[in-house]
Write a protein that binds this DNA or RNA. Sequence first.
DNA 1: CGAGTATTTGATGCAGTTCAACGCTCGTGG
DNA 2: CCACGAGCGTTGAACTGCATCAAATACTCG
Lengths: 242, 242
Amino acid sequence: MATSCQNCPLRKKPIFKELSSHELRFMSEFKSGELTVEPGTPILMEGSNSPQLYTALRGMGLRYKLLESGERQVVNFVFPGDFLGLQAAVMGEMGHSVEASTAMTLCVFDRNALWEFFRSHPERAFDVTWIAAEEEHFMGEALLSVGQRNAVEAIAWALVKMHQRGEALGLTRNGEMHLPYRQQDLADALGLSLVHTNKSLAKLRDRQLATWRNGRLALHDIEQLRQVAKLDEEAPRVRPLM
Amino acid sequence: MATSCQNCPLRKKPIFKELSSHELRFMSEFKSGELTVEPGTPILMEGSNSPQLYTALRGMGLRYKLLESGERQVVNFVFPGDFLGLQAAVMGEMGHSVEASTAMTLCVFDRNALWEFFRSHPERAFDVTWIAAEEEHFMGEALLSVGQRNAVEAIAWALVKMHQRGEALGLTRNGEMHLPYRQQDLADALGLSLVHTNKSLAKLRDRQLATWRNGRLALHDIEQLRQVAKLDEEAPRVRPLM
DNA sequence: CGAGTATTTGATGCAGTTCAACGCTCGTGG
DNA sequence: CCACGAGCGTTGAACTGCATCAAATACTCG
């Protein structure tokens, strides 16, 4: 049974900006349903022009690009609250594909909701822009990691980042969280080989900094991990939820 | 003498979307002046919250991020028509720095122009979002290059991309264009060492594919370069000019 | 239990880094 | 007018982080 935006379980999390009841009603109007998908299901395809926009309500996924020769670059991990399909809605074409890693529930909007935002709800339109800018910001960080950090540093960076995101969503319990990806996914995100990723993870384990096993990530010393990753503390930004 | 938006030399180039005369007047209203800077001048700083937005009118520059340890990741190259400062205006903080590589002329807007767009000019607000989405799209491509292509492939990719951009702006003459960057800039964009970048450029020269010398780039066989870069042809998108 | 998928470990090789030196060009000052 | 130094490009040689190859060990699920 589809939840209304009123009862959206994500809405209440402090990481998300509050919506006025007017905005809430407006969003409900454009919500055209919910979609539940199996692990491994493709949700959006690079180059396609989906008529739908999604907000991830539950579950996790991947954004990635493929080279004709088969190499895969994971460009981001999808967490609850993420907005999917923006590029297609704005530019007419997705720059990457999206697929589910776990079972996911997606909130579905029709694309012309976007036009409606710009025409009659400038605050919501601004939020969309905020999301695009944030995504760009993140990609810059990722580029910095892949280009300038070595394997251990990059992995430390990625683990801290994902843990941070989990924390902001209340997905952690005593520094531990569910992380339903394969090592291959992380390798493809950081431009590393699977083998080297595995060995570098082992180093972090040996140094008692982080353990990621059986789909659970535990960070034992975030401060030191941050140092290894050359990452400085930053408060998570309050973000809009679409 | 500052040119008015009416006479903006960029406006007429076919790569840029046409503006209605009403939009044109509106933009002029918000243009607060022009800024001319020397090569090497910092324009925006990562982490800062500039009250100004810029459109590059003339000259070229770099967007980059620094690691505390000194490594630099160039996240994009700035060409005429690029919009600078969007992240600060939307999120309150730049994700990267911007600096001039050549002498540049920038068109200056006050930041609250942006708010005005969203409040009263939804088409312009949409254009801003388009730009953010395009920037995100490009960063995904760059991430793919740095993560999955080897040195020669990545360099071929970058050269073709930059040539494409030059072409769209009418900066090329028989396949040649001015490319005022140092090899170090390209190296930092692709996560490569200077030495290896130099040697890989030499390979492309030896294979008669591309020559980049004395600030001039010449592509001798774009089709083959594209193949080397695993890059498929795509028509340049018509983009908004702010 | 067996097949398929993911993780782990070891061994070998190479793409790319690092170190070092040299050349070219241009601007500056004596 | 030449000497000098700074910045950038080029080249060679040695080293290493990471890729690749190969195979064994877990884990999952019908």
